[in-house]
Amino acid sequence: MTVLVFGSANADLVFAVPNLPLPGETVLGEGVRSFPGGKGANQAVAAARDGAMVAFAGCVGRDGFAAVATGALREAGVDLSRLVVVDQPTGCAAICVDHAGRNQIAVAPGANLAARSAQVEDAALHPGVVLLLQMEVPAAEIAALVARAKARGARVVLNLAPPGELPAETLRALDLLVVNEHEAAVLAARLGCAADAAGLRAALRTDVAVTRGEAGAEAATAAGLVAVPAFPVTPVDTTGAGDCWCGVLVAALDRGLPLAAAMRRAAAAAAIACTRPGAAAAMPEAAETEALLATR
């Protein structure tokens, strides 16, 4: 095990709609499909399909949605020995996707709120492990796991999505913080700094990467700024793109790639994910990402 993901696993119900509903508006859809999802599971699948050895710690319920939520994890060969079945219902997301590939998402966390940092034993948190976290499980458990992981020498990456609150000392303990433009703006407002990678790094004193969709991504580190363009594609469904970026980034860092190269690989994989429906189901295999990288 080299990549350990602590996070959420959901069943995603994806509705194809001509346009995203406005407040109070009902839009008749063109179909509905179920996919495995949840930011934690999505990122674990992305990392595994990119070639990393991955373990996942989280919770699902005893209902029929549990098999949907864990299906892609099992297919990708992710170690699920730290997955716990609880009495709460499996997390579920309702996702509307319009003709332009834009999405609108509502999530019922369910069993994800039962996830506990104790599911990850101390022995799993060592210098050879990259720990990847998101914000769809309890913040207190994330903070506790970050503290334990840093004390034992693990490399810690947090995707602050959705943009929940964590203690400043938790954010400063990270090796890398990943946010999108919206999450960067929310965090910057709390910190009273500029909503870009450089501003956030100056405020937190930890490395920060900001993803900007089709505008690419930027990172601020002690060595300076890194900017990586996006790979242009015609999107079908952007639901899992950010999760794909994070999972592949961590897989690349785990293999020893420098941050700029890891970000470029993540951008290529995320572009491929945008051309497919679903979240975890859309994550590319390493060979597909390498083929796109070879074109530019």
Rank of each mutant, 00 (worst) to 15 (best):
E121N: 12
G199I: 04
V156T: 09
K150P: 08
A144W: 04
A115F: 05
L187N: 05
V137I: 13
Q119E: 02
G164M: 14
A115Y: 13
A195Q: 00
E183P: 01
L132I: 13
R116I: 11
L158K: 00
V178P: 07
V179Y: 00
G199Q: 08
R152Q: 15
A154N: 02
A124I: 10
A188S: 07
N180R: 00
R148M: 06
L131Q: 07
V156W: 09
L113N: 12
L133S: 02
A197I: 02
A144Q: 11
P127Y: 03
A115D: 09
V146T: 09
M135L: 13
A149S: 09
L132N: 13
L113D: 10
A123V: 15
A118K: 08
R201D: 13
R190K: 14
A140I: 13
V137F: 09
N159M: 05
S117L: 13
R116F: 15
L145S: 06
T170E: 06
A154V: 00
D122M: 01
E169N: 10
L160C: 13
G128V: 05
E141W: 01
I142A: 09
L131M: 12
L176I: 07
M135W: 06
D196T: 04
A144C: 13
G192V: 00
L177K: 00
G153S: 08
A168R: 15
H126P: 09
V179T: 03
V186F: 06
R152M: 13
A197C: 09
V129P: 02
A189V: 06
H126R: 14
N180M: 05
G192P: 00
P167C: 09
Q119K: 04
A197F: 10
A139D: 03
A161L: 11
L145R: 03
V178M: 11
K150R: 14
V129G: 04
M135Y: 03
E141R: 01
R155H: 07
L160E: 02
E183T: 15
C193I: 01
A184P: 01
R155I: 04
Q134L: 15
A144K: 15
R172K: 08
A140E: 14
E165C: 12
A173M: 04
V146Q: 05
L166Y: 01
P138F: 09
V129M: 05
